[in-house]
Design a protein around this nucleic acid. Structure first.
Lengths: 347, 347
DNA sequence: CTGTTAGCGCCTTCAC
DNA sequence: GTGAAGGCGCTAACAG
């Protein structure tokens, strides 16, 4: 039998030969079909079929200086917070012919530096960071690389390049304001130990004015750590009235532990989360939380980078997307208990 | 002030000049330091520092035919099932100097084909699929590309190349066997409509022997769809005794809905999930589920591909990692209710 | 509209 | 241990 697979993948050279045109004409027929005659284009397309040609974007990128790859860097993929952003980013880039190179820092500055170096070596046309770039070394590296950078899910006055996010301090103070306005006296905080969660904590503490009992758990936070956190808080403050959690998963854990201890939510204990995870709206009681438009962050980041590659200057380099509190049954006996996410909104 | 950033990134050429050696010596000092004298190596390293040189892996890959990139393709990033695998895969590849190119198919064969084409254009040194390659066209494409391929999270007698996974049919029949052995009569199924979940459903139905009331929900399944699924099942079979769910998130939804309807779990209704998500062990009641070693799939896939790139033939091309049922309180009044994941094991 | 020329930055091959 | 050519596959730049 004949080998159904040719020993060597076809190159553009083979296509050009098969089509009876020059190399560059074949290249144009594929990359910029508008400037080639219909007849030529048809012949090249036929030759592509016949040879089974698959372009080598690495080679093209070498000359054109555009790899059509974008690096996306997350603390860890298991931090579900960022998933909608990464998912939308990947999809939006794909639409434009770009692919995502994924990197993880595991909340470690040295690792972040290492991952960035590895990414930059691959000449991405842009870099999207979940969170701000931590180390000064990495910031310097990025500036030198002259690659468009979008930092996301946080805010800064001096971003490396562009930033899309919101103030975690303000989230914290909005939450504190919410509990203050409702007359809560003894509120505790269950929080992950990552930078952004600690920012929210700081915002909460500042607005609260008094000391807030706090249970710190390792990021990424889990249901289990939420259960333990409530135990810790109750030990310190047995008459606790409310717990503000740094993620919906932590809040979930607090809910489970509260039930296990016979505490009613929200009557005996009010609970709030962060992130508006899918499940938060559908638990009983539904979890009061803070909504951030993760998919929009991904879409916007993709647009900014693709635009920049095409020479379009962004209208701004800072985008504060804000956030909104969503009041649900876990903090309010009167809030509808399974209303759709995002409804009703406060702030 | 002097521009702190040089107008053009340094190339290996610049490094060689600065070090007073030839281009190729500089290349060797970095890529294969052992075959260069200590003195030369030191001078090259110094020149790298001085110039701020960052290697261009794209250019290197062009000649060496090794891009040191691996494509990872998931149905959608939001399918949490695959996250531990992708996370471990990314980390393991990073250790070996490889990066992951991420692609999403959204359970769509045309899209899968498109994503694979885009990936192959980037000359990855390997491709890891979550699930089996669906379309024959894509299979053919992969074979022609002569790239190592690992299909995962499923099993097949005729993989494109290599496969790491387990039989979803067997999972289904193991679950049916579990409920049969405990004397359940009226069992329902809540399942996502993706290929693998339907395989488990088929395995369950075959082992069960009788018709099984089934609520089908769109993949990826959510807590909300779990709540609705239980409603549907109860409408068809008000005296339902147990529900086997195709994911832990669905099971979670069933638990929530059961509680909302005043049904006790497991006394009135037994519930099982799939995937052994982190939260499953820590709910009250803890969810009986099926454990699959997702991280190991990622690790093994990384090893197989890196080995293959180094010319090491894999010991086998098929790896059945199996699965194990984890009995917890949601199906058994006697099972410990917050025991550690994976304990006790059945099957 | 099409073709020729000259690389992109690096690594392989072969010499010394 | 080091170096000089040559070329990976493709595309910008400039012709015609």
């Amino acid at each position: 039998m004949n080998p159904p697979i040719p020993p060597k993948p076809a190159t553009l050279h083979d296509v050009a030969k098969a089509a009876g045109v020059s190399l560059i004409t074949a290249s144009r027929a594929l990359g910029n079909p508008a400037i080639v005659s219909d007849k030529t284009r048809a012949r090249v397309e036929q030759a592509v079929e016949a040879t089974g040609y698959v372009p080598n974007l690495l080679a093209g990128g070498l000359k054109s200086k555009r790899s059509r790859m974008v690096a996306g860097i997350v603390p860890a993929l298991s931090v579900s917070q960022f998933l909608p952003t990464v998912q939308t980013l990947t999809a939006a880039l794909h639409e434009q012919g770009y692919q995502l190179l994924l990197g993880q820092t595991f909340y470690d500055a040295a690792r972040e530096d290492e991952v960035l170096a590895a990414m930059i070596s691959r000449q991405p046309d842009g870099i999207v960071m979940m969170g701000l770039v931590q180390s000064e070394r990495a910031r310097e590296r990025l500036r030198r690389a002259r690659i468009p950078v979008v930092e996301t899910w946080d805010f800064s006055d001096r971003p490396v390049d562009m930033v899309i996010g919101f103030s975690h301090l303000k989230v914290g103070s909005a939450l504190a304001g919410y509990f203050l306005a409702r007359g809560y006296q003894r509120v505790g905080i269950a929080t992950g130990d990552d930078h952004r969660a600690m920012q929210r904590h700081a915002g909460f503490a500042a607005a609260w004015g008094r000391d807030v009992p706090t249970a710190r758990v390792a990021a990424p936070s889990t249901l289990e750590s939420g259960r333990r956190a409530l135990g810790e808080l109750l030990e310190r403050q047995p008459r606790l009235q409310a717990v503000a959690c740094s993620s919906d998963m932590l809040a979930h854990g607090v809910l489970v532990e509260a039930r296990a201890r016979g505490l009613r939510v929200p009557e005996d204990l009010a609970v709030s989360g962060f992130g508006n995870a899918e499940f938060a709206a559908h638990m009983v009681p539904a979890i009061t939380t803070v909504h951030v438009d993760g998919p929009e962050i991904g879409r916007l980041a993709a647009r900014l980078i693709v635009d920049r590659c095409r020479g379009v200057a962004p209208e701004r380099s800072s985008f504060d997307l804000g956030f909104r509190m969503i009041e649900r049954a876990s903090t309010s006996a009167t809030a509808g208990d399974t209303g759709p996410p995002g409804h009703p909104a406060v702030d």
